[in-house]
Simulated scan of single mutants.
Amino acid sequence: MWRSIDIPRIIAVLAIHVLTLCFCVQVQASAQVSSEAAQPSNVLPHSVLRLPNVHPGRDPVYAYAKALLYQTLKVTEAEFGTFELVITEQEALQARQLRNLEHSMLDVTWSVTTKERERHHQPIRIPIMEGLFGKRALFINSDDTRFDHPLSLAQLKTMRAVQGYDWPDTRIFRSNNIRVLETTYDASFKMVAEKFADMYPRSVMEINHEIKNDNKTANLKIAPNIVIAYPSPMFYFVSSDRPDLAERIQRGLEKLLANGELKRLLEAQEIYQQSMTLLEGREIINLENPLLSEQSKQALDTYLPYPSPSPNSQVDGMQNKQPQSSDTTP
């Protein structure tokens, strides 16, 4: 039986199969190497960034801050990758928004700054509202005639303001010896309307929008003649453990500043235009802000006023526009 088996032929067939298998493995390996070589070695990540929900009374301010952040991230896509903005469902006050950064519940928020906030969170020290949150017009009672003529700081110190519980402005007014009643945002309007407080200082970027809300501002008016002013820049903030995100926002804002797009976007906002009109011809009463860090004072000197936009300027071919494809809202 064994004599009928052609051993040399079997060996030759097996050798052919082995050689064929080795060739196929080599071709497959070469194809995989070529495929890997064809792909970029530094594929950039896609970032999903969570933002706070709009706070009552700040719809236009929120819309501007969000649009600016979108452009800031858009002009850095080539360096840092694509992104998506997601709005959280729950509203939160300023202090809670900042705490949410450290609890990994938010990725970016914006707020006026203080030394304390900068100790716990990472600020991007480029003012995004051109310092206008430190320019305060006053809601007063509709029957109050004391403001019909310009008042001095000494006269304001005889009155009582109303402000929010967690607002840095509360401490700023008190440090300048102006009495402050602390309450909620909504209750502040009632305090002045019912004459429990004399004035409700609001940013010139907010007050024109708020005066349109009859439910809140019935029996109130904007005081003529004066504006209270103190240095109070608004910054973007990220978590202290996100230096990469802070660097991205810093670079994006610097790009928008350099060619004037930041100024162009701000000046296109109706609330900015109304603010400029409101400030015309008013007496400025200056207060000190003891809450500012030296770095933030330097940022005001470095970045304000904003550079003017160059003719027909745009960044990386992008016009001023609202978030579209990379923006997701609830």
Results as ranks from 00 to 15, higher is better:
95 A>N: 12
255 K>I: 13
66 K>I: 14
41 S>H: 08
284 I>W: 07
210 E>A: 00
234 M>W: 04
8 P>C: 01
196 F>I: 08
27 V>R: 15
179 R>M: 09
213 N>L: 15
175 S>G: 04
91 E>Y: 11
295 Q>M: 11
306 Y>W: 09
327 D>R: 07
77 E>V: 13
80 F>P: 04
215 N>F: 09
273 Q>K: 14
289 N>P: 00
155 Q>A: 15
220 L>W: 10
99 R>H: 14
125 R>I: 06
309 P>S: 14
322 Q>T: 12
249 I>H: 14
79 E>C: 05
144 D>I: 08
14 L>D: 09
327 D>Q: 05
140 I>Q: 14
285 I>M: 05
172 I>G: 04
122 Q>L: 14
134 G>D: 00
301 D>P: 03
328 T>P: 03
121 H>T: 15
323 P>K: 05
265 L>H: 12
102 E>P: 04
330 P>R: 01
142 S>D: 13
62 Y>P: 06
87 I>P: 03
256 L>D: 00
70 Y>R: 07
13 V>S: 07
172 I>N: 09
56 P>H: 06
236 Y>H: 01
221 K>Y: 06
13 V>F: 11
261 E>G: 09
228 I>Q: 11
2 W>P: 04
71 Q>S: 15
224 P>F: 02
300 L>D: 12
46 H>K: 02
64 Y>C: 12
325 S>E: 10
43 V>R: 14
195 K>I: 09
14 L>Q: 13
255 K>N: 12
20 T>S: 14
239 S>D: 13
225 N>D: 04
13 V>A: 12
273 Q>W: 07
300 L>V: 11
190 K>R: 11
192 V>G: 03
38 A>L: 04
118 E>C: 02
155 Q>Y: 03
290 P>H: 05
178 I>E: 01
200 Y>K: 11
7 I>T: 13
58 R>C: 07
136 R>G: 00
224 P>V: 01
156 L>V: 02
72 T>L: 01
277 T>S: 13
278 L>T: 11
202 R>W: 01
43 V>L: 13
326 S>P: 04
117 R>E: 12
78 A>D: 14
162 V>I: 04
136 R>A: 03
17 H>D: 09
264 R>Q: 10
89 E>Q: 15
52 P>G: 01
